[in-house]
Design a protein around this nucleic acid. Structure first.
Lengths: 119, 119
DNA sequence: CTGGATCCCCCAGGATACTG
DNA sequence: CAGTATCCTGGGGGATCCAG
């Protein structure tokens, strides 16, 4: 320990780690992203399914969030060139490996976070 | 509302977990919160120290983020009734226990997140 | 069915100035 | 030194309509 206020390395991370962290958080901080990922953890979903299942989200926003998740490599978008268009979204390896972290956060929340400002 | 057509898979979580999760994420999603927490992991800091160390943040915003963190029980604010006002911020138990989760997220980022958009 | 294009609202966050 | 009080802007997210 002996953290002399000048020793940036002590937990095995670089000084700018919080910066990378912020980006990581941003990737999953969209209002519906967690719910989307959650559904995709179970199985592949079509756009319409997501729209129906996630109550309260509009196509516009859902599309946007999906696009962002895709750009961040968190989900895969597969388009079927059929007459009634069909698009399926599924998770990626990255998403799957993220799950333990999510679990970790959830556990923490249950222990410490849920009893503060309940706004 | 419960999950609809899929089996209650269970990764040890309740149906509405994504909701709680979002709140947990929100708690640490402020633009400077991670950096603040990071500094407080090392040691207690005064307001002025944080303001100087965290480049780019204004008093206004820093104050706001600190207030939010405090309201969420992530930091402690101690005021010394001295002539030159002194206020010290330090982390709480909750914060300390959150660290592994943060580490987990960081590791994930290094493995999967850093090679997508953003560089 | 999927998902653009528009318009709107709200608020986190930035800049600046003023006090106890 | 620490913290308010204003004012301002960008962008996330909502609603609605149009299109391939």
């Amino acid at each position: 320990m002996t953290v002399t206020d000048e020793d940036p390395v002590d937990r095995g991370v670089s000084p700018n780690s919080h910066d990378a962290l912020r980006r990581a958080l941003t990737m999953i901080s969209g209002k519906w992203k967690l719910e989307i990922l959650w559904l995709l953890y179970h199985r592949t979903h079509r756009f319409g399914e997501l729209l129906k299942t996630i109550h309260g989200v509009s196509q516009h926003v859902l599309t946007k969030q999906l696009r962002e998740l895709e750009a961040d490599g968190l989900i895969t978008r597969k388009i079927y060139a059929e007459v009634p268009p069909r698009v399926e979204y599924s998770m990626t390896d990255a998403t799957r490996e993220l799950e333990p972290t999510i679990q970790s956060l959830m556990l923490w929340w249950e222990n410490h976070g849920s009893n503060t400002r309940g706004t």
